[in-house]
Design a protein around this nucleic acid. Structure first.
Length: 774
DNA sequence: CAGTGAGCGAGCTTCCGCTTGACTT
């Protein structure tokens, strides 16, 4: 008999809390939401006041059954889900799913996982806040209505299986629009002038690098300036020294952790979350999905101690940060080490590196400001009114910089500011060399996964638990692709004045190289422009912020949730109907030109299976030829020549073992076909240029792998095989696969052993990756 | 797994936000 059953969302949290409470308490977790709208139809009864049709989520049936059993023999059930609208809804769903009666059900909340916080929560139970639940219902129903009415429009007007939603469609819009801006950008160049001086009277001949306070747009102006410098005298005219300070960044939230792990460690958003989850589950950090920068008093106390011990009391400056993020719900603490005293942890390399980052960020957030001194030295030129400026920065007290410095997205540090030598007004300077270098303006940077998360968070779109899944959805739908792209080589000119000689040199630089950046695909662009044309209100960057305000009103009891949904739905639904009626099917079709050989028209468009080219008209008499675009090609940029190349496949390479070898490209990329066997080409192979020799090499390799795949065969029974797969050895029998018990050595198994295993074990179910049956 | 792309029509796809395992050939 359990006296008290406490239900929290996360199992790791359950374990911790159980330790704080006495033996009269059992703590279990419900693993997040247990109920959701039915997936069939809309899951919402529109005619009946938008009544949601809830079901217990199929994957939660087991959890619910277990909790129900535990609850039935508990005296009091404490619902301790998070204190935000999703958490409130979870508590409410638990009441329904577990069939709890009000008299023995209590709702409690806490913001930090400490004994005192939990005990205090137990002392102050409350009832479920129905207004907050209603705000969640409004959020849920709105997302369902938008997603499930918008997506089918895309199926009809563009292509099946596409998706649209309040969050993902805005994410795609951001990327598509940024690419558009970059396409329209044209770089403008100007000449930046820098001089290397030495101090004339100084014995050490100290060096000073200074930049001219003016850039020249034309090369002639830069040369004219250098001409004036030939006979000029340079002297210090002004020294301006002023104090400055730098403050540490607040502790990590999900979004800032993803950004810093991306910049400092090169982690993808998904990888960061996976590693953080591992750290959380082993008790090393606090919860990793949070929008709060808040640290508990206990954590601040630990930080103070740790900083005093490691760096001295002058390095301590405790701070309580306030969350400014739009729509933040702050159900958790910031992400921090559970015990700041643990400087290092056990674990794999990724875990150690991410932990180190979290430790440093947390500690730094409670450290003193860095005190700096910034100095500007103005150097006059006797022959002209322009000035050279030398900038210096000296750290007087390092403070938090001893531990941690936040990275920036654009880290092209051109002016590294360091120490300047001591100078006085009037000091003479000698110019060793003056360079005018042609510089180009830069377009806005493309989004990385992490900088997209940052932007979404700024717009108040998405939640800590959905940033990583959203990023993966828009890539899975092939709206967006993450890739590296080569830069281009560009020429720039460098004009130097040394002594009295001016020389000009044309140099080259590589520009525009991109690493792991997000690009819109053809489908992404097409879907985005369609949605922008017909549903600009949903794609509006302020749409979420506006509905969030209404959700807040619902939570405050000032607005009835289904009234809000009613007011949103009917105009929106009319828009859907109108679009279905008036808009044409779109494919982004363009004519590229004429095939010089056949005289047929070449078109490029989005087909049922993605971007494609079509040679000839759609005509039942003379069917056109089709070909898919290759990876990396786009309907925006493909040329007629490239399109013609696509029809050069399949290409016969010659004969091998008396049958023809053909190279072509299919659903899964380029391949070589020989007899009825297919071999995929390597990344480095090009189907247009591959020769017979290389193709035979690929075929032989594949055959070798095939033989290695078989561990054992039995002459007595051809159906029975022991094969080596991705997850180790397994038994294959009559097209079914069976696991081999860990206790058995696959090499030692006899045919009899195998037959026993086949008879006694269930065949492995085909995985999610296998093709669906038609 | 492997050269699809017409048109018909069945039946399917799809949202966001909370949580982790179960499982893959």
């Amino acid at each position: 008999m359990t006296k008290n059953l406490v239900i929290v969302e996360s199992p790791a949290k359950a374990k911790t809390i159980e330790g704080f409470l006495g033996k009269d308490f059992v703590v279990k977790s419900c693993f997040g939401h247990v109920m959701d709208l039915a997936k069939k139809d809309l899951g919402v009864d529109i005619e009946n006041g938008f009544l949601p049709r809830y079901i217990i989520s199929p994957e939660k049936k087991k959890v619910v059954a277990e909790l129900k059993k535990k609850a039935s023999d508990a005296e009091v059930i404490w619902l301790a889900s998070d204190e935000d609208r999703e958490g409130e809804a979870i508590a409410w769903h638990l009441v329904a799913a577990l069939d709890l009666d009000e008299s023995r059900t209590k709702r409690i909340v806490f913001h930090e996982i400490t004994k005192s916080a939990i005990l205090e929560a137990i002392e102050n139970p409350r009832k479920i806040d129905k207004n907050l639940v209603d705000a969640q219902q409004a959020r849920r129903v709105l997302d369902r209505l938008v997603g499930f009415e918008l997506s089918p429009v895309l199926w009809k007007k563009i292509k099946p299986s596409l998706s649209a939603g309040r969050v993902q469609s805005v994410a795609v819009r951001l990327i598509a629009e940024r690419e558009e801006e970059i396409r329209n950008f044209s770089a403008v160049s100007s000449y930046r002038v820098q001089a290397d001086f030495i101090l004339d009277d100084d014995k050490k001949k100290s060096k000073v690098t200074a930049e001219l306070n003016k850039r020249f747009s034309e090369k002639e102006e830069a040369i004219a300036f250098l001409e004036k410098c030939k006979a000029a005298l340079f002297a210090v005219e002004e020294i301006d020294t002023k104090p400055a300070k730098k403050s540490p960044a607040p502790p990590f939230t999900t979004s800032t952790l993803q950004q810093e792990a991306s910049r400092k460690l090169g982690f993808s958003v998904a990888n960061t979350m996976r590693v953080a989850q591992q750290l959380y589950e082993s008790g090393k950090i606090t919860y990793m999905r949070t929008d709060s920068v808040n640290l508990s008093q206990m954590a601040i106390g630990m930080a103070k101690e740790e900083i005093t011990r490691s760096f001295g009391p002058e390095y301590v400056k405790t701070r309580q940060y306030t969350t400014r993020t739009k729509g933040a719900q702050e159900a958790h603490e910031a992400i921090r080490p559970t015990y700041l005293i643990h400087r290092n942890i056990e674990g794999d390399n990724s875990q150690k590196r991410l932990y180190d980052l979290i430790w440093k960020r947390t500690i730094a957030s409670q450290m003193s400001d860095a005190i700096l001194e910034k100095t500007n030295i103005t150097i006059g030129i006797s022959t002209t009114k322009e000035k050279f400026i030398a900038r210096g920065e000296v750290i007087k007290f390092d403070g938090f910089l001893k531990v941690y410095m936040e990275s920036k997205d654009d880290d092209d540090d051109e002016n590294q500011e360091g120490m300047l030598p001591p100078v006085s007004n009037g000091d003479k300077m000698i110019a060793q060399e003056i360079q005018a270098q042609q510089k180009f303006t830069q377009h806005l940077p493309r989004y990385t996964e992490a900088s997209l998360v940052k932007k979404l968070e700024e717009l108040g779109i998405g939640r800590p638990s959905t940033y990583a899944p959203t990023i993966s959805t828009i890539q899975k739908r092939e709206y967006v692709i993450r890739e590296d792209r080569e830069g281009i080589v560009r020429q720039y000119s460098m004009i130097r004045l040394k002594g009295t000689k001016i020389t000009e040199e044309v140099k080259t630089e590589n520009t525009g190289f991109e690493k792991a950046k997000l690009y819109p695909t053809d489908i992404g662009n097409l879907v985005n422009s369609f949605l922008m044309q017909y549903f600009v209100n949903i794609l509006d960057y302020n749409f979420t912020a506006t509905v969030e305000e209404e959700f807040d009103e619902i939570a405050e009891g000032k607005l009835v949730w289904n009234k809000m949904i009613h007011d949103f739905y009917y105009p929106f639904h009319a828009q859907i109907e109108e679009t279905l009626e008036t808009s044409k099917k779109v494919s982004g079709e363009k004519m590229l030109g004429l095939d010089p050989l056949s005289g047929l028209n070449m078109y490029v468009r989005i087909g049922r299976y993605g971007p494609m080219v079509q040679l000839g008209e759609t005509d039942p008499e003379n069917k056109p030829r089709f070909a898919s675009l290759k990876k990396g090609q786009s309907i925006d940029t493909i040329t007629l020549e490239e399109a013609l190349d696509l029809f050069k496949l399949p290409r016969p390479l010659g004969d091998y073992e008396d049958s023809e070898v053909i190279v072509s490209t299919g659903r899964f990329g380029p391949y070589v076909k020989h007899n009825s066997a297919f071999v995929s080409l390597a990344k480095s192979d090009d189907p247009m240029t591959i020769d017979l020799e290389r193709a035979i090499e690929l075929i032989t390799e594949k055959r070798k792998k095939e033989t290695e795949k078989t561990i054992r065969e039995f002459p007595e029974n051809a159906d029975m095989k022991i094969l080596n797969g991705r997850y180790g050895a397994y038994i294959s029998f009559k097209k079914q696969n069976y696991k081999i018990p860990k206790s058995k050595d696959p090499k030692e198994l006899t045919l009899e052993d195998c037959l026993v295993i086949v008879k006694e074990t269930e065949p492995s179910k085909p995985g999610r990756t296998s093709r669906k049956k038609k």
